[in-house]
């Protein structure tokens, strides 16, 4: 089970990282979502015990799932979601400015600006 969980987390992380390598703002956001999911799954998996839902009345003698990691996962999911939403808003604003969701075009603009600054130069 440990191996399977680790594999699943690694695949989520890897898929997210792959999407981060794309030059499309939306895909980068999606990649971030996947990486956050990997982290959330990891928190859930790092629970110290696994069993019934942590709800009273608890079954006698049976294992109960670690409630603390559940609380942490919940918090992490919500935080991750909020930040993703903000990232999406930033991406949308970037689109409004450039009329493109292409990161390459964003970076071209950046480079253009920089090369304008580079023109004249003296040390002191």
């Amino acid at each position: 089970m440990t191996l399977l969980l680790s594999l699943a987390i690694a695949m989520l992380f890897g898929a997210g990282a792959t999407l981060l390598m794309k030059s499309d703002l939306i895909r980068i956001v999606v990649g971030m979502v996947l990486i956050s999911n990997a982290a959330n799954l990891f928190i859930m998996a790092s629970g110290l015990s696994r069993g019934f839902a942590p709800l009273y009345p608890l079954p006698e003698g049976a294992l109960v799932s670690d409630p603390l990691v559940q609380a942490m996962t919940l918090t992490a999911i919500v935080i991750g979601f909020s930040i993703t939403a903000l990232l999406l808003a930033i991406a949308y604003r970037a689109y409004l400015d450039l009329d493109s969701v292409e990161l390459d075009e964003l970076e071209e603009a950046e480079e253009r600006e920089e090369s304008e600054q580079e023109k004249e130069w003296r040390p002191f």
């Binding site: 981060l20 703002l25 990232l87 930033i90 991406a91 970037a94 400015d97 603009a109």
Partner: peptide, 19 residues
Amino acid sequence: ARQIRAAFIFATVNLLGSV
């Protein structure tokens, strides 16, 4: 436009760090 661009880069990279 500059700020938005900076914010996107900042948020993406640092989000990775936070994760």
